[in-house]
Design a protein around this nucleic acid. Structure first.
Lengths: 249, 249
DNA sequence: GCGATGCCTTGACGTAGATCAACCTTGGGC
DNA sequence: GCCCAAGGTTGATCTACGTCAAGGCATCGC
């Protein structure tokens, strides 16, 4: 089956319960079968730590289902999330033998892993893999830079609005949640504490700001996790970003 | 002359005043001569804006001499620096036709540029370019994540110490400045305001914290720009990071 | 030499968000 | 149905940093 580009995304197409597609129209079959050969799946429960920073890491891979985070912790316990991994996001770095960040499953998680050494070899011989990874890494870098603006210059309220906006945007682009013109409903995959670690705030401040946005009708909550945004524009206005194109990708 | 890997670094080797090496032992001469063909230099004075966010961008390139910054500005004028470009750093994104950030020369600046379209074509045919760019982008992503910890969780004092540490480390790795065991001396390439934009602080806070570190003997200043760090370990202790390997690459 | 200009420093004061602490909600196990 | 634990909310207070304002100190053109 010929596919135009290499995909690191989840597909359910029989065989193994969740099939991970890694095929490329321009690479020959040997490459593909090798990729299949070094592939395996790992599952984690919500709350489990996948890897501690400094652990040896003999695989790279990507998230198939669930949500994971990358975070850094200082000696005194202050922690900052530095990556939020949703389905199709890549984990690990070719050429790096140990984890640079703590990787944690925040929901039940399935990952598709490739043994690192053979993957690196394959990457040398199959240019499209490196090209695809380059695009993905550049996207992550853009996201990191948007995140830096949030961390460095936004108020607590703007931070919360931005986070909700970003999570909604990602869910929408993955076809999750409900989206109608100007509205959306979806689940927050993070606890208040995880949101605080994302935004460089305390969990109390997160809670207060969410309450405030709720009281003012910017968002609506069903339970603690499910969010309804009645007016997309209104939320965007609260993020501090300008309407068009202010936020990347 | 055969070189093992593609380099995006500055070399003065005759021909053009500052020669930009883009050679690869494993690629044939045609590729190389094409890379030479689409190459040109641009110079900017300190303070000049290279590109505004949203400007069309028909080149990619790298810094040859000087320092430039990437930054994002909100409607009300708050700005956050999201990239600090020193010699050999890459600018631009293959496949992106407009600048996503403001690019500013903070010192006199020379850049080596390649016309974007032909560069992209060349990249498709010359795998080592994508592989090299991938490594560089991954390094930038690591730096961005270190930066996120600084922005989100560190105190003003720790931020300043971290910045001085990072700048010293980079200067040392480029062979600039003076380094003896446990000591170093180098020039801050940034104004107080630029440091504030880097760290998500105000320039007054930057100034106060620098004064405090000076008063306490952690650093020493000759003029406003030249820094002497008498005890590397002492400075590192002030950054809040743990001694070994806490900070990436 | 002498303003003028662009950084930088320092001080006084205000405030957003952290901290400390109590309490509430929800869901699971029995 | 009841208890318990984990996560979430809300209030009172504290403080690090921002804001506003007044100089200081080099460098430049004249």
């Amino acid at each position: 089956m010929a596919v135009v580009d290499i995909q690191f995304t989840a597909h359910d197409c029989g065989g193994c319960p969740i099939k991970h597609r890694a095929v490329c129209a321009r690479c020959d079959d040997d490459e593909l079968s090798l990729l299949e050969e070094i592939k395996y799946y790992r599952s984690f429960e919500a709350g489990q730590t996948v890897l501690w920073s400094g652990d040896p890491m003999d695989f790279v891979g990507s998230v198939v289902t669930g949500v994971a985070t990358l975070s850094q912790t200082m000696e005194d316990g202050r922690t900052q999330m530095v990556g939020l991994l949703l389905p199709s996001d890549f984990v690990g770095r070719p050429g790096r033998g140990e984890a640079a960040y703590d990787v944690t499953a925040v929901t039940d998680l399935t990952m598709c892993c490739f043994r690192r050494k053979p993957f690196e070899k394959l990457m040398e011989r199959t240019p499209h893999i490196a090209q695809r990874l380059l695009q993905m890494t550049l996207d992550e870098l853009d996201a990191a830079r948007e995140w830096m603006l949030i961390l460095g210059r936004k108020t607590a309220r703007e931070k919360i609005a931005s986070l909700i906006f970003i999570l909604g945007r990602r869910d929408a682009s993955l076809g999750l949640g409900t989206t109608t013109v100007g509205q959306m409903t979806f689940d927050l995959p993070l606890t208040r504490e995880a949101m605080a670690d994302y935004l460089g705030l305390t969990l109390e401040t997160v809670s207060r700001q969410i309450s405030a946005l709720k009281k003012e009708g910017v968002i609506d909550l069903q339970g603690k996790r499910r969010v309804h945004v009645p007016d997309h524009e209104r939320l965007l206005a609260e993020t501090g970003d300008d309407a068009d194109g202010g936020m990347v990708a």
